[in-house]
Structure formats: structure tokens, C-alpha cells
Amino acid sequence: MVVGIRIHGRGGQGAVTASRLLATAAYYDGKFSQAIPMYGTERRGAPVTAYVRVDDVRVRERELVHTPEIVMVLDPLLSTRQTMADDMAEGGLLLLNAAYPPEEVKTGGNIRVATVNATNIALETLRRPITNTAILGAFAKAVGWPKLESIEKAIRKQFSGRIADMNVEAIKRSYDECSEVIPAPVKIAGESEAIAVGGYGVLKDVSSWRVFQPVIDMDKCTGCKNCWIYCPETAIKWTDENKPEIEWRKCKGCGICVNECPVGAIEFKRVEIKNE
């Protein structure tokens, strides 16, 4: 039986790599598979989609996966959106990167849900919020395949040395920390809404990209304007009091200002994702 999988993430979280690791692991399990990335004008931070098809026979069709049996979301903010469950097969499984248990998932429909805090696992094992491997272990647990050893083998084929070790640790932790799979608590699907992904000029809104955000201690700030010079997104305005002010719409949470501040007046704090 063919199984279609859709993977949502952001440029930089490794959705395409996740699709390839999953397809390779399924192949090691003795299945045929196909990993299809969707390329457009992707860049770091913008939402991206990838697809995987797993079957008992060689996959020949070249269309995208239109009614996925499984949807996996690598980004905690995207995880709060109803859009992720669009067009899912009846009774399909929605695996979310979220800091809360599946009972609190608001995404609705005749589907099943499971959660894992992949961002935490990634930050602790890889020291950066690349959540692809930190959710794949949970996939194996929630779905029942591919074998954890197959994912490890796929990772060791793709990466080597310390990087491979860290990613293998991530899948193992993710396997252990995956929640139970439960029927979605919300039965009726809410309205699907688009998410601001960037754009240019006045439409520019990259606020959804942030995992960390700068917090400025105005008492420490000397008004040297280093942050204002280095900000790549011109997200820092200058006030009449000779102090910086962040335009949150433009701030993508890159942390350059934190790095450049000569007096250490800017702290980099984890953004909390509210599940509303």
C-alpha cells in the first residue's frame, strides 16, 4: 500500500534532508520510496514543503502527494496552524513539533495527533534549532516504521563523524520523548489561514522566523549605533533619546545585533510559541 507523507518546515530546519533520510530509511526497511522536494525561491526562514512516498512496489508516478496519510511539521509556530492538516487523508496522522501534549493540540479534523518538543531536543543535542532529525525519531515511534536502526543508517550515510553522532542522539531522544498518538481533540477543523512568510517593502514581515529574539537593556546601552549599522534587515530604528528600537515585523531573529553590541546590552531570549 502506498503511503504519502507531507513535511512542513522552514528553510534551514532541514525539511528536504528529513524527506531524504525518511525515504532512505524506508528503503533500508525493504520498501520502495521517493523523496520529492518542492523548490521555489526558498531561503532560510521561509516555509518549505517536501514529500515522501513509500510503497511495496517501485514508485512510478511523479505527482506531488495530494492527500497525505501522514503530515510532519518541523516548526513550532507552523505547528499551531490549521493549514498543516489541509487535505489530509481520513484518520491520517499529524506529528507536530510542539512543547505541549497532544491533548492541547487545537488543529482539528478526523485525524490523529502526536507531539514532540523537537526544538528543545535539537538545541540540546545539535546546539542549533535544526529540527529534522529531532522529529524523525518521533516519526518512527508514532508511525511504527521505519526502524530506528534504519534511520541511524541513513543518517550515517548522509553525515559523518561528530555531526552524525549528534543527529543519531537526536533521533534516539526524539523516539523516547514522542507523545502518545491520540485522536485529535478538536473534531471540527477551524479555518485555514496563511502565514506571513516575508515579502518586500511594506509587505515585509519576517517575524514568524524567530526562534530567539533580541532583548535590549536600555540602561547598559551607550547609544553607539553598532546594532543599527549591522542589522541586515534594517529592523532597528533610532529614537530621539539616542536609543535603539526594534521593528518586530522586520526582525528575523538572526542575533547579529547581540553579537555586535560592544557592551553586551542585548540578550538573546527564546521566543515562546503560544498555542492559540
Partner: peptide
């Protein structure tokens, strides 16, 4: 061979 459809799709 078709770009994207084959060039970036992984399969055995």
C-alpha cells in the same frame, strides 16, 4: 531529464 521532478527527487 526533467529538472526538479527527477534532478532533486531521491529514489533507489
Amino acid at each position: 531529464y526533467d529538472g526538479y521532478v527527477l534532478s532533486y527527487t531521491a529514489e533507489p
